[in-house]
């Protein structure tokens, strides 16, 4: 996995609550058997005026000028500013894959749905929760300031505004360690293979009916 340490990036504001993973990457793109290539179809139904399909050339499709990511000032954004319950709905990991493939490295919002939140960490994308009133302020500042950037320091657990105002954020120590080092969960878990085997043998002895 790609490590995440620090990031100073352009911010794009997606000002709506309950953004679901169907909106992040619509179902027709889930037919792919790859992990990459979802970026051009991120937020497909909001981003384009026509209907997207797998294999369709996205370069010639009509863009929705009202959608925030189509505004030139947000081109190259690496940080997505979001509202409550971002990533709700389907567990599809294609959602963080699409965000990552588009170029987002961090999400800053008031709350995230559980499975999506977890999926982000597995892909080197850092979701950061800040209090709703801070998020309100960041939205206002981002909309008011062209080229608005935030800097994120995972080791210090801080998000810094351009004027230096710093906001501390919580992150699970284990996930933080994995992200900072780019560690692969599976490799870490397999270091405990003997313990897993012992647990499994004991469980099989106590509950053989789960092992037929």
């Amino acid at each position: 996995m790609r490590a995440f340490t620090q990031l100073d990036g352009l911010v794009a504001p997606l000002d709506r609550a309950n953004v679901d993973t169907d909106a992040i990457i619509p179902k027709q793109f889930l037919k792919s058997i790859q992990r990459s290539g979802f970026g051009p179809n991120l937020f497909d139904e909001w981003r384009y005026l026509d209907q997207g399909a797998p294999g369709k050339d996205n370069a010639g499709r009509p863009l929705n000028p009202d959608f925030v990511l189509n505004q030139p000032r947000y081109a190259g954004a690496q940080i997505l500013l979001t509202r409550d319950n971002f990533g709700c709905g389907s567990s599809r990991e294609h959602a963080p894959w699409a965000l990552d493939d588009y170029g987002f490295r961090a999400l800053v919002g008031s709350s995230f749905a559980d499975i999506f939140f977890n999926n982000c960490f597995k892909n080197g994308v850092l979701p950061i929760c800040l209090p709703a009133e801070v998020i309100d302020r960041l939205f206002a500042a981002c909309l008011a300031t062209e080229g608005y950037r935030l800097s994120i320091d995972l080791a210090a657990q801080q998000v810094c505004e351009p004027d230096g105002t710093a906001h501390a954020f919580e992150v699970d120590p284990f996930r933080k360690e994995c992200l900072l080092n780019g560690w692969d969960d599976i490799g870490l878990t397999l270091r405990h293979a003997d313990e897993i085997r012992a647990f499994e043998a004991a469980r099989k002895a106590a509950h053989p009916y789960y092992f037929r």
Binding site: N118, N119, K122, D185, I186, T189, L190
Partner: peptide, 12 residues
């Protein structure tokens, strides 16, 4: 679970 976790469960 997500697909990374599907792989994790398969492997571990």
């Amino acid at each position: 679970i997500g697909t990374s976790e599907v792989e994790h469960v398969l492997a571990t």
